[in-house]
Computed example of a mutant assay.
Amino acid sequence: MPTPTPAPGAGAVPPRTEAVLSRLQLMVTRKLDGLLQGDYAGLLPGPGSEAGESREYRPGDDVRRMDWPVTARTTTAHVRRTVADRELETWLAVDLSASLDFGTGRWLKRDLVVAAAAAMTHLTVRGGNRIGAVIGTGAAPVPTRRWRAAPAPTGPGVTVRVPARAGRKEAQGLLRAIARTPVRPGRSDLGALVDMLNRPPRRRGVAVVVSDFLAPPQQWGRPIRKLRVRHDVLAIEVVDPRELELPDVGVLPVVDPETGELHEVQTADPGLRRRYAEAADAQRAAIARELRGAGAAHLRLRTDTDWLLDMVRFVAAQRHARTRGTTR
């Protein structure tokens, strides 16, 4: 199955990556598009500005909504009702820390990040819906810049903001911005990245956080809870099987992609493998507990499984839960 490849560095998107993004669009729309048809189920929309029916004026009504043609015909004051705005605004917080440039399964974790972003983008950018993103890579804190159709910035620690816009052309531009952002040494501040979706306050909508969530939960838990107050939040966790358990392959040299430190691990020791698996289970349980406490929907994608099938099952389960009136 085709997947995005890691960006080779600053500059334009290579032709192969461009072709992969196009194939991703086709795959997502074919397999997921039919699952999201119909009205939005989520936070209540605002009153909107689309003209609707008229009714008689009552004390306290906004005089700016007076329907003067109906008032003149009936000689009774009428106001125009408005139809609720059904336009959806979605924001992505994409974490491209150095730990994402790793993978021992079918893909790199970075591949899954781009694939997940492509899926959410193509599923929401229809009917005038807008989608934007904040992309973080490298060490925090760093200045923010506005994204334009120009080469990706260079230097350590970069946060890119792609303004929320409607249209498939703009959506493809957003995906190119994610695909061409190089992974840099260090870990981005996931909490600060999520907080960028809280400031400035935005209209109610959907917020999607894509990361491996390896940063301590106390760093990003509070910003996600704050985000959940105003938006529907989806957390997409990207996992590699080697982060859950070690294989028995003897002495295994491992490098921390965020610090560059080299360690040699004796994987033939069953006690070490057991402790590693227990620590990994505890870490993933803490991540799931923090996301559940924040009220965010949680989707886990693995580099050794079919990510598209996992996403289909997740979307179908979410729709089924909403139609039954159950919670996440």
Rank of each mutant, 00 (worst) to 15 (best):
R328I: 14
T29I: 10
W220H: 00
T303S: 10
R322Y: 07
R30Y: 04
T76H: 13
R64G: 08
P253N: 12
R274D: 07
G11R: 10
P217F: 12
T323S: 10
Q219H: 11
A12C: 02
P156V: 13
R168A: 13
A235R: 01
P8N: 05
L174G: 06
G260P: 02
L43C: 02
R176S: 12
P253E: 12
S49F: 12
P201K: 01
G136R: 06
A152I: 09
V233M: 05
V162D: 01
A12F: 05
G221R: 13
P151N: 13
E278N: 00
A93I: 02
A286D: 15
Q283V: 11
R199T: 14
A316K: 02
G260N: 06
L299G: 03
T159I: 14
R328N: 12
G52I: 07
L227A: 08
Q37S: 13
L214M: 12
L35C: 03
T82S: 01
P253S: 09
V13A: 13
W220N: 01
L234H: 02
R242Y: 12
A150Y: 05
G127R: 14
R73D: 11
D85S: 13
A280Q: 10
R300V: 15
G127T: 04
L24N: 07
V160L: 15
T90E: 00
T71C: 00
K31E: 14
R81Y: 04
S49V: 14
G46Y: 05
P69Q: 09
A207Y: 04
P4E: 05
L123F: 07
P153Q: 14
E50I: 11
R73L: 10
L26W: 08
L309S: 06
V28C: 08
L252A: 02
A139R: 15
P15S: 05
P217K: 12
A288I: 08
V251A: 09
T76P: 00
D195V: 03
R275I: 03
G48S: 11
E87D: 07
R81V: 05
A286S: 15
V251I: 14
R110D: 05
G11M: 11
V183E: 11
R322A: 14
D212Y: 04
V206G: 00
W147N: 00
S99P: 00
T121W: 05
K109D: 03
H122S: 06
I236V: 15
L272M: 15
W147L: 03
V162M: 02
G221P: 00
G132F: 09
A235V: 04
L262D: 00
R64A: 10
R16Q: 13
E87T: 15
D304G: 06
A171C: 08
L309H: 06
V158E: 14
R146K: 03
R202Q: 08
T121I: 09
T90I: 10
G42Q: 08
D269L: 14
V238Y: 06
P200D: 08
R202D: 08
R324G: 03
T137D: 12
